[in-house]
Every structure is written in C-alpha cells, then in structure tokens.
C-alpha cells in the first residue's frame, strides 16, 4: 500500500513543488518591470530630488543590496539556500521589509475572507444541490435552480458594486472600506469581532452569492446521475425515508467531486481575491501580489506564489490520501 499508493504521490508532490518554485523564480525575471528601475522611477516620479549624476551609482548600489548582482544561476542557488532556511528574502519595493512580514500582514485577512466564503458557499451549494435532486418536483428545487442559473453569470464586479451601493451608500448599514473600525483594538474582544464581521459581511456575501450557484449546479448534476443508480432504487423499494436516502445514498456517492473542488479551492486561497479586495477596499494578498507584479518585486511575487504552490500541492496530496477513506471504490482499485 505504502509503496504502491503513497510513495508515488509523495514523489509527485515534491516534484510539482520543485518545478513550481523554479518557475516562480524564472517567470518574474521575464517581466519588463525591474525592481531597481521601479525604485528609481518612484523616487523621481514622486518628487525626490535625484541628481541624474547619482542615478547610476544608486542603480548599482540597489542591485547590490537587492542581491541582483551576479548570474541568474548564482541567484537561483542563493534563492534555494534562503528558502530552505524559511527565509523568503526582503521585498524590493519595500526594502528591506521581509517578504514574510508583508505576507503575515495580509494573509490572515485573505484566509478569513476566502475560507469563510468558500466554506459557506460550498456548504450551502452542496446542500441545496442534493436537496434539489432528492425533491426534484418541489418548488424549492425549481426556485433554487432558477436562482443559481440566474445569479451565476452576473459579473462579479457588478454584483460587488450593487451590494456596495445598496448597503454601504444608499442604506449605510455596512462600511465602504477597510477590515475593521478605528478604536477596535485587534484581539479577541467583542468590539473587534463585531467590527470585523461588519466589515467582512459584504465581501463575504458577494462571494458566497455567486459561488453558491456553481457548487449547487455541480452537486445537482452529479447527484442527478447518482439518483438513477440501482442502489437508490433499492433503497426506495426498501421503504427508507427520503432524508435517509439523501444523506446515506445520494450525498455520500455524489460528494467526491465536490470535495476535490473544495480542496483545490482551499489551495488557491493563498493567492487572494484581487477583485473583491479592490471592490470592497478589503485587505488581503491579492492586492499585495498585484502591486508586487507592477513593481517587479521578484521576492514578493515568489513568496506569495510559493504559498499557493504549497497550498494547492498539499491539498491535492491530502485529497489523494483521504480519497480511499471517503470512497471505497478507490480503495478497491
């Protein structure tokens, strides 16, 4: 079992990470933006008096500081040495702030936002999907299907803007921007938690509303095949209740693709949700990554992507490992 099932997957896991991490080292260096030039142009564009005579010296000094002198192979080796000690290096655009510090500032917001919306939408969509299949002729099933198909194609930005205008501007119930209010000291206290919930409500709602449709349709499609399987007919013939059939026969057999989808999406959590962050001016990794790309901040781009690579690969590995436990058919194969 260990040799046949676990080992190949572990090798695959390590290989994917090696390739992924190497790619995130190479790709940012192909960008036309360059961290040193970005720093120089920011200095001049934003008013600093920079004698052109000093520019060349400054350029050389920054290249040295940023560790960009020397060949790409040498930089690659340094990068791995640093990475293996858990050091992602300094951000160039905010030198010498460590990349880990920047990620640490943004990651909790992203995880909070995306994890909550993902789990909520998954739970609601999956439940509604299976209920709609179990009770196909109910009004609920029809309404849910219409809503799911009607809401899902709405462009996310429009949905976000509508929510924002309605509930932050016309009816100013929720705030327009930020992650929490002034005076709400960070920590496990009522003021901060309520402030946090209030600020997160619209971003989370916008994502849940649109994502529920996807999960709903996927679950309904899989479950509608399952419901025609003979074991479901036998269960009905045995006189089992619809609830029991739904939970033990339909859901259990239709849930596997949903779990794969969930796990993959969990892995993508680290990349952030740029449009949500921009639409609701909500803190997170998406904006951090976007500004890093614009600034050619190699280390920050690599740092954020490494989280995503590790996240997605680990999610895939975990799925591979727990699949046999969830679905006996895999175990037998």
């Amino acid at each position: 079992m260990l040799k046949k099932y676990l080992l190949p997957r572990l090798v695959q896991y390590v290989t994917v990470m090696l390739i992924g991490i190497t790619m995130v080292f190479i790709i940012p260096r192909l960008l036309p933006s360059d961290p040193v030039e970005h720093q120089l142009s920011r200095m001049t564009a934003q008013g600093q008096y920079l004698d052109p005579a000093a520019v060349e010296d400054l350029r050389a000094s920054l290249e040295e500081l940023y560790g960009l002198k020397g060949g790409i192979l040498q930089q690659y080796i340094t990068y791995w040495k640093r990475l293996l000690t858990g050091n992602l290096g300094p951000s160039f655009a905010q030198f010498p702030t460590p990349v880990t510090q920047l990620i640490r500032t943004s990651l909790p917001w992203t995880i909070g936002l995306l994890l909550t919306s993902l789990l909520l939408s998954w739970l609601i969509g999956t439940t509604l999907g299976v209920v709609a299949v179990t009770y196909p002729n109910s009004v609920f099933a029809k309404v849910a299907a219409v809503l799911a198909m009607g809401i899902r194609p709405i462009p996310y930005y429009i949905m976000a803007l509508v929510l924002l205008i309605l509930f932050a501007f016309v009816f100013p119930i929720f705030p327009m921007a930020g992650g929490y209010s002034m005076g709400a000291r960070m920590g496990f206290n009522a003021r901060f938690i309520f402030s946090l919930l209030r600020h997160a409500f619209l971003p989370v709602t916008s994502m849940v509303v649109l994502e529920v449709g996807g999960w709903f349709l996927q679950m309904r499609n899989v479950a509608s095949n399952v419901v025609e399987e003979e074991y479901v007919s036998y269960a009905e013939a045995m006189g089992l209740s619809r609830l029991k059939i739904m939970l033990h026969y339909i859901t259990r057999n239709a849930i596997a693709p949903q779990i794969t989808g969930l796990a993959l999406n969990l892995g993508f959590v680290f990349g952030g949700a740029l449009i949500t962050e921009i639409a609701f001016s909500y803190p997170g990794m998406g904006y951090l990554l976007y500004s890093a790309i614009l600034a050619g901040d190699y280390n920050l781009i690599m740092g954020i992507n490494i989280f995503s690579i590790v996240g997605v690969s680990t999610a895939m590995l975990v799925i591979d490992l727990i699949y046999p436990l969830l679905d006996p058919r895999v175990r037998y194969q």
């Binding site: 209010s181 002034m182 005076g183 709400a184 309520f194 402030s195 209030r198």
Partner: peptide, 13 residues
Amino acid sequence: CLVCSGSAFAADP
C-alpha cells in the same frame, strides 16, 4: 443587530 449597528462599538473621533 450588533453587527449592523457597528456605531455602538465604533470609536471614531
């Protein structure tokens, strides 16, 4: 209610 009435907790100057 508590979430919506954030002003009850706000400490803006």
